[in-house]
């Protein structure tokens, strides 16, 4: 399936990736090639096959609902680009 440029722009927006205007043509070509490869799957008969999300068909493990971690906010925020008084800073969202 060929993918159109406007579709790439839409998924790039969903993925929060800016695509510089000069790169969109090449990207369209590359993604069209990749989608042609994965489209080979459409020929497979998978009717009645249950989708597999874990190779061991494992289910989510549960642990006792108890506090096991200590607060490490200072260590985690020490590597953040911008923090103030224990909060992460981002550009103003509400004017």
């Amino acid at each position: 399936m060929a993918i159109e440029q406007d579709e790439i722009e839409k998924i790039a927006e969903l993925a929060r990736l800016r695509i510089p205007p000069g790169e969109i043509n090449e990207l369209t070509e590359r993604l069209t090639g990749i989608l042609a490869l994965v489209d080979q799957l459409q020929a497979a008969d998978t009717s009645g096959v249950e989708p597999m999300s874990n190779p061991l068909d494992a289910v989510q493990l549960l642990r006792p609902d108890a506090v096991t971690e200590s607060n490490q906010r200072d260590a985690f925020q020490a590597i953040a680009p911008a923090v103030e008084e224990g909060l992460y800073l981002v550009p103003r969202v509400i004017e």
Binding site: Q42, A44, T46, V49, E50, P51, M52, P55
Partner: peptide, 15 residues
């Protein structure tokens, strides 16, 4: 459905 689910079904066949 056409991509992700289909691929997960194929994955079971491969296993």
């Amino acid at each position: 459905d056409a991509y992700y689910k289909k691929a997960q079904q194929a994955r079971r066949l491969i296993r």
